[in-house]
Design a protein around this nucleic acid. Structure first.
Lengths: 250, 250
DNA sequence: TCATAAAGTATCAAAAACGATCAAAAACAT
DNA sequence: ATGTTTTTGATCGTTTTTGATACTTTATGA
């Protein structure tokens, strides 16, 4: 049996059964265990499957990250610092918009115990906000599974009823030329509108997002203050030419 | 059976049954008790389930717990029966409104696996709805702490964008003369509007609500079909003169 | 309350799976 | 045909997973 034959067979099985055991494959192909292992290793490298102890399973897209709240603790610490600074910008009486997302979520615990009003499209934020007894408005609209963000036409209409003093946005990509980007066009629309409704905007993005470009652009660099945690001097000057930048932590 | 297979199996069971016993899992997977325990420990660490003595249950956010202040299991069983009947009224292609509240919340697990769209003002419902992969719209507006219902002017405006085939409402008071009532006037407004936007309305109310009167009236008896679980014959005829009544269970 | 049974934790050795390595076999090129 | 490259299968030491055991904690009812 040829290598490519085995590959198709494996992919076919994984696709159909969601998971395959190495021993199954050994019997089915007649090849040795070593060979099967090599096959799986290669298929994993090519991003077709995910190896697990004893076999391999279907590689689910980015669906996994949303439901699996596993963060490298370093990245989490960085996000917290960014979030803490962002939260410190909130003043008594402010009405703020907090974008859906994990970085902005970290803000909530640091929000000052003052009279503020929060509007959000992130359902994951609600629990924390209510726990802190903050007056909270939620945007109406359809719920995007996985990210639990409220999006769609309804969200845009619903948001139009509000005006914000400050908006705190997340971003998947920050690029000196292409500006701020995010994968989902519908989420981009919501972000865009939130920013136009706000007197002032802060974009929270850890180092991993810098230089990246995602599919949908929702703002120019100049449209908001960037809050991040690490920045090469040359990149920094590139950004600073266009907008205000705040670098937190070490 | 591979680790990941067991994981999916466990999650599937928990998702469907709300709770699983370790012994069940031992029999179902053929793995040892130790292994199952380890699995549960890990799944708990990953925030997928909550371990309890003897098994594991679905992890629910505080949005859901908040409004569930420990009901007697009898009353819960009755609510479940009412909810189950209500859910059975939902048909393929329906667009339904589900009111905030504990009784209506029970409906979610019984909703048919068909193409339906749900609109709700109850944040406690969202988790369950998304778990069942139901297309869900949330009403925008201010969040009432304690009950986690979305209310206020924004809620009314936001809801106006939708029309429903069926609306399922909760009520704190059901009275043959004073109709359906609820304590909070703002919630009453939302209920009222939801009913006018729906072709058909069902009110879910267990025996404890019958004959009661709360502060704010949101509908006449005739405005919807009452679903309840116990009814004296004389009271029943009183209600039946005005509207349709469905009595479920014993 | 106390006794008892069921469930939980911690630990450890056996079993299974893994990765690395190497020589034999097959395919390939000249 | 001969030397070279690629693929394959076997082996071995290491790591991960597993199931059994002993001991502790929790639930329950007399």
């Amino acid at each position: 049996m040829l290598t490519d034959e085995r590959f198709s067979l494996i992919l076919e099985l994984v696709k159909h059964h969601d998971i395959v055991k190495i021993q199954e494959l050994v019997h089915l192909t007649g090849a040795s265990e070593s060979t099967i292992r090599r096959d799986l290793t290669e298929l994993e490298k090519k991003k077709f499957i995910k190896r697990v102890h004893g076999g391999a399973k279907l590689l689910k897209g980015k669906l996994q990250e949303a439901s699996v709240p596993e963060k490298s603790s370093k990245s989490l610490q960085e996000k917290k610092k960014i979030a803490q600074y962002a939260a410190s910008q909130v003043e008594e009486g402010d009405c703020i918009f907090i974008d859906a997302g994990t970085t902005t979520q970290q803000m909530i615990e640091f929000l000052p115990d003052k009279e503020i009003v929060v509007v959000t499209n992130g359902l994951m934020h609600l629990e924390g906000l209510l726990l802190k007894e903050i007056k909270t408005y939620v945007i109406g609209g359809v719920i995007k599974p996985r990210t639990n963000a409220v999006i769609g036409r309804g969200a845009l209409e619903s948001m139009n009823a509000y005006r914000f003093d400050k908006a705190f946005m997340g971003a998947n990509g920050v690029h000196h030329e292409f500006g701020y980007t995010t994968p989902d066009p519908e989420e981009a629309q919501v972000k865009q509108l939130a920013m136009t409704l706000s007197r002032e905007t802060f974009i929270l993005a850890d180092e991993g997002k810098l230089g990246e470009i995602a599919f949908s652009k929702f703002a120019e660099m100049k449209d908001g203050t960037l809050i991040t945690n690490e920045l090469d001097d040359d990149v920094q000057s590139l950004y600073r030419k266009q907008t205000k930048v705040k670098v937190v932590g070490s």
